[in-house]
Simulated assay, not measured.
Amino acid sequence: MNLLLLKLTLIPSVIAFVTLAIRKWGNKLGGLIGSMPWVAGPILLFFIFEQGKAFGIQAIQGTMTGILALISFCLSYSIFSQKLTWGPTLLLSYVIYTATAVVINYLQLNLLLSYALVMGSVLLALRFFPIPTGQPASSRRLPFDIPIRMVVATLFVLVITGLASVLGPNWSGILTPFPILTSILAIFSHSLQGSNATITTLRGLVLGLLGFTTFLVLQAYLLPSFSIVVSFGVAFVVNTIINLVASRVG
């Protein structure tokens, strides 16, 4: 299949699935589902198809930096959402995301150290996540909200993969977990259901990063020796198992 056609069909389908999952199973489980490698996985796959397997493997280290920045985004958005509307909350969270990414990238950590730092940061962030006060407001839906989400996410993937050769593997990796899907989930839950729904969704997403991060680290070790199908398949199963366990204890 043509890669452009794959991008234009796969990503919108993923966004629609995650949105419908949240509506069916609630914000916490929806956040866990949203943390699966629905967007970052295909982006890594497109890196490999378009730039080569070595490029994709090198990008994983940068992606770890992006995940640390994503954790800071989720925590800060949850905190600010209690007092602010979605506009200033999003802007402040993006600033914190960017600052975190720049600092972590400057440290030039190796993959295993980055992995340990991400896992520790997830647990620490969950410890300090705000506690929802009361129940989420009754759900409202904007007309055409799913198509809007689909278009925004697809444009992001097209831009990141299109600029990969210019950005190089490190910055391409850093931008891979950029909170585009997370922002969509946060904005819609914040504006339509209130801060409590947003906190619950983002907490579920951060909890799911335990599995998502493991998925990426496994790619660094599996891709050099196995096919893409085997590497992604094994890592996806491990990711799912971790998320199932996390949903029980988190």
Results as ranks from 00 to 15, higher is better:
L123A: 15
H190Y: 03
F55M: 00
A116H: 04
K24W: 13
S191K: 10
G173W: 02
L117R: 08
G168H: 03
S191V: 12
S114Y: 03
T161E: 04
L29K: 09
F215I: 05
S13L: 15
S76W: 11
K24E: 09
I241W: 00
A153I: 02
P147L: 09
I184S: 04
A16K: 03
T214F: 05
V157A: 12
G41I: 06
R23I: 14
P12Q: 08
P136F: 10
A235D: 04
S189D: 11
L126F: 01
G173M: 05
T176E: 07
I187Q: 06
T63R: 07
V118N: 10
V14Y: 14
F55N: 00
M64I: 06
V237T: 14
T154Q: 10
V18Q: 00
L155I: 10
A69F: 00
P37I: 00
A69L: 02
T214H: 05
S76H: 11
F215Q: 07
G211S: 08
I174H: 04
G62K: 05
T200V: 07
A125I: 01
P147E: 05
L44I: 11
A16E: 00
T85K: 09
S78G: 05
I33Q: 02
L90V: 13
V14W: 06
I180Q: 06
L4R: 14
L92G: 03
Y106R: 10
G168T: 02
S93Y: 03
Q135F: 11
P12V: 02
V152Y: 01
V234W: 00
L167G: 08
K83N: 13
L216E: 09
S72C: 12
V234L: 13
